[in-house]
Design a protein around this nucleic acid. Structure first.
Lengths: 120, 120
DNA sequence: CGCGTTGTCAACCATCTGGTTGAACAACCT
DNA sequence: AGGTTGTTCAACCAGATGGTTGACAACGCG
């Protein structure tokens, strides 16, 4: 799992981390702040943040003794690009398939009309 | 990891599985066919397909002794929706932040101009 | 019918993951 | 200097993951 795209997908595969991202999308938070709603230790949250950081989804700056966590939205584009690429490809294929099926139906209809083969 | 979104993200966190999806976006394949390029056992590929199937990304139908694997592109929408929601939210926040910073600069400039605080 | 082809199931193994607790570090406030 | 607050590091544990090999089920073909 060395490439960033894998790390991003893996990071978002965890519901707690997705929720953190959701909350961070509304503004920066400190670690304590982020941990509050979850029923796990602060250290567990710190680990989750490390996963998000390694994926490039968040950055942590230092501000006095706090370490505010900041969402980096650009990384989302990496995923969106990957997804859209293959989704579109698949959809184009469906379109072609539909066309082929339509042609087949046109070609074969004459021989089928003698039976009841045109039923859906 | 009970919810589908988690399963979809987790499924795509593996480079081999992403490559399978990429190839399936060009058309259906049999398991043997899919396994060919990878340097792993057929059973490992079968496991990967189970993960993709559990995520709802592919379906397998039976066709004689072959089991053609078919990509279900609709599930991508689940991810895209999630991603876009928070990306947009984050971007709107940036826009607001920019506006706030611009206002702050206007308000505070008079007091800062005495020092060299306006540096980037 | 028996046989090869195609693919899955089962058991096992090493490594990763998400959680825990306890200790440590860092920066601020007396 | 010492205490408080905020966060991370280290060691450990149970369960998931990705891989292996061996057995076997399902189907079409000669």
């Amino acid at each position: 799992m060395t490439d960033q795209l894998s790390r991003v997908f893996a990071a978002l595969a965890d519901p707690t981390r997705r929720d953190m991202v959701a909350r961070l999308s509304e503004g920066d938070h400190t670690v304590n702040d982020l941990a509050a709603p979850y029923d796990v230790s602060l250290q567990a949250v710190s680990k989750h943040l490390k996963v998000l950081e390694d994926a490039g989804l968040v950055t942590r700056t230092r501000e006095a003794q706090r370490r505010p966590v900041h969402l980096e939205a650009e990384v989302f584009d990496l995923m969106t690009k990957w997804i859209e690429r293959y989704r579109q490809q698949a959809e184009e294929r469906f379109a072609r398939l539909d066309a082929v099926l339509a042609r087949m139906q046109d070609d074969d209809n004459p021989s089928y009309t003698e039976k009841e083969g045109t039923a859906s």
